[in-house]
C-alpha cells in the first residue's frame, strides 16, 4: 500500500491501482454524507479532480494520484456514503485506475512514512 500527502491510499491489484482515502482522513472528515464518482472510461492526469466527498463538515476533492484511465468505480458508496467511515481501506475504495505509467506509484510514501506524516 502506498500513500499520498492528500491522504489517499493506492494498492496495486494486477494491472490496475485501487484508490481510497485513509482511516486518518475519514476520521478527520467525520461522517461522510455524499460521494460523487467519475465515469468509467474517464482518462485522468495526476492531480485531476476525480471524485467528491462531503462529510457533515465539508466538501473535499479526491485527486487522481496517477495518470491513467478509470476502469471501475465503487457504486456502493453513492448509495451508502457512510460506508467510507466504516471501512475506508477495505470495501470503501473509490475507483480503480489503469495507470499509463505505473512507476508513478514509486513516488508515494510507504506506511511508515505516512504514519510519520500524520504524526
Amino acid at each position: 500500500m502506498k500513500y499520498t500527502e492528500e491522504h489517499e491510499w493506492l494498492r496495486a491489484e494486477g494491472d490496475v491501482v485501487v484508490v481510497g482515502i485513509t482511516e486518518h482522513a475519514s476520521t478527520q472528515l467525520g461522517d461522510v454524507v455524499f460521494v460523487e464518482l467519475p465515469e468509467v472510461g474517464t482518462t485522468c492526469d495526476k492531480d485531476d479532480e476525480l471524485a467528491v466527498i462531503e462529510s457533515v463538515k465539508a466538501a473535499s476533492d479526491i485527486l487522481a494520484p496517477i495518470d491513467g484511465e478509470v476502469v471501475e468505480i465503487n457504486e456502493m458508496l453513492v448509495d451508502n456514503p457512510g460506508k467510507v467511515n466504516e471501512d475506508p481501506t477495505g470495501d470503501s475504495w473509490f475507483f480503480k485506475i489503469r495507470p499509463s505509467d505505473p512507476s508513478q506509484m514509486d513516488d508515494y510514501m510507504d506506511e511508515a512514512a505516512y504514519k510519520d506524516l500524520i504524526g
Binding site: 491522504h7 482522513a25 472528515l29 462529510s55 463538515k57 465539508a58 476533492d61 479526491i62 485527486l63
Partner: peptide, 18 residues
C-alpha cells in the same frame, strides 16, 4: 463552527488537511 473541514482538498483546491 468553521465549515471547511479537512480532507484532501477543499473546493478552492487548497490542500486543507495538509
Amino acid at each position: 463552527p468553521p465549515r471547511k473541514l479537512s480532507g484532501l482538498r477543499d473546493r478552492q483546491g487548497n490542500k486543507t488537511l495538509e
